[in-house]
Design a protein around this nucleic acid. Structure first.
Lengths: 226, 226
DNA sequence: CGCATCGTTGATCAATTTCAATGCCGGTGG
DNA sequence: CCACCGGCATTGAAATTGATCAACGATGCG
């Protein structure tokens, strides 16, 4: 719905060049449409803009020389990504589903004069980001694999879940390996957690992507020990 | 050096009440002196101030109901701690050595009009904080125990190390359990990493606190695999 | 001197990673 | 149309790491 056919037909969705598709101007707002795999920016790029995710999902990642990767965050609608430090981005960012982002000039973050409301919004988002990352620390360090996956699924319930008569449903746009790199686990361990939750009737998978949460409370019990 | 004798004599350094010692006014600046264990604020407290660490070290921690604790960060001189979200702190903060902090009113962060330079400084610090936490993610998720401890020691080298003819020396003000909770390990595992590094002649310990780094490059090799 | 706290070490155990194989599905080309 | 191929998901078995449990040593303080 947010993509023209020509955007879908992009022949090089995984190219290693940041998205430079002509942005739409809608009113005063600067939107950009992304297809899966398309990059918004790379670590080290000069940070011209911050991006507010409007639709779809992006992923923020850091890669080490040895190939190990950490997914720092998933950007969901409402999230602002691309906070700069020293004038440049310090993660890569690419879309993991069709996505729409709104670009805000970096100057709006650094300068409160021109657009005071936007400045407030962006600095507020930075503070939220700090808090969210601290939450993520708890996840990464003091939780077992099952707890991590359960907690991850619960945040998905809150953020992209749709209530149905059978339970809460959502589509995971990211691969298992993304979830693993987000949680500091391996793909196999993530899979096994999914399998266990399925066996225990907490969730059900129509496809590997489509998750139906049958027992949110059960999941909550798994997310926190004791 | 930064504490009066009466401050040392504080009979309840670990009390559950935030430090409310009469702050010194030096010029226009608002300083506060802390003794080890003294709290600057608690999670959930209304965030009146942000604090810039001037001397010593503080620790930022979150505690879960089940008792598990995550040290979110150590605050070293130059760091700014206490970024609020929703008007309140989201970690506890206490001193782990004698420390001096400078208080900045929260309004300086939220309002750019009154003190523009300070506002810039604080928002800039928030962005740095985001970047630093992303670094910490790499540490927490994609590293082995030895890699984590080696990386930790290297940041200490950079931040509090003093060059001597024998190597770089520093005093760790925090306990082993703090390092463990910072790195997502147990005390025993941290100890074993220290012991291994000592056996391998990368470091030497005069006391458990006093670290002499004999071979920074060796430590660097341990911090990043391959 | 004795206790309490912290650090260290050893032995065992459980969890997760690693390695390996299989299944599944969509896309491609014969 | 169908067989093959590649990427992703899943499962199993073995190997490894770090946690846990337990004990001991060192230090500082009442």
């Amino acid at each position: 719905m947010y993509l023209t056919l020509s955007a879908y037909a992009d022949p090089t969705p995984n190219t290693c060049v940041s998205a430079k598709t002509a942005p739409d101007r809608t009113g005063h707002k600067l939107y950009r449409r992304l297809t899966p795999g398309q990059h918004l920016f790379f670590e080290g790029d000069d940070a011209e803009h911050l991006y507010e995710v409007k639709r779809g999902m992006v992923r923020l990642a850091r890669v080490l020389e040895n190939g190990r990767r950490q997914i720092v965050a998933f950007g969901l609608p409402g999230d602002i990504v691309g906070f700069p430090e020293g004038g440049c981005y310090h993660t890569d960012c690419d879309a993991i589903s069709d996505a729409v982002v709104e670009a805000h000039r970096r100057s709006a973050l650094e300068d409160g004069e021109t657009d005071h409301a936007l400045h407030q919004k962006l600095t507020g988002a930075a503070l939220q980001e700090i808090c969210a990352m601290q939450d993520h620390f708890m996840m990464l360090s003091s939780k077992s694999a099952n707890e991590k996956v359960a907690a991850f699924l619960l945040t998905m319930v809150d953020r992209i879940g749709e209530r149905t008569e059978k339970g809460v449903v959502f589509d995971l746009p990211m691969m298992r390996v993304d979830i693993a790199d987000f949680l500091g686990l391996t793909t196999e361990t993530v899979c096994r957690a999914f399998t266990r939750f399925r066996r225990d009737k907490l969730i059900s998978l129509d496809t590997p992507q489509r998750v139906l949460v049958l027992d949110p409370q059960g999941l909550r019990d798994r997310a926190e020990p004791e």
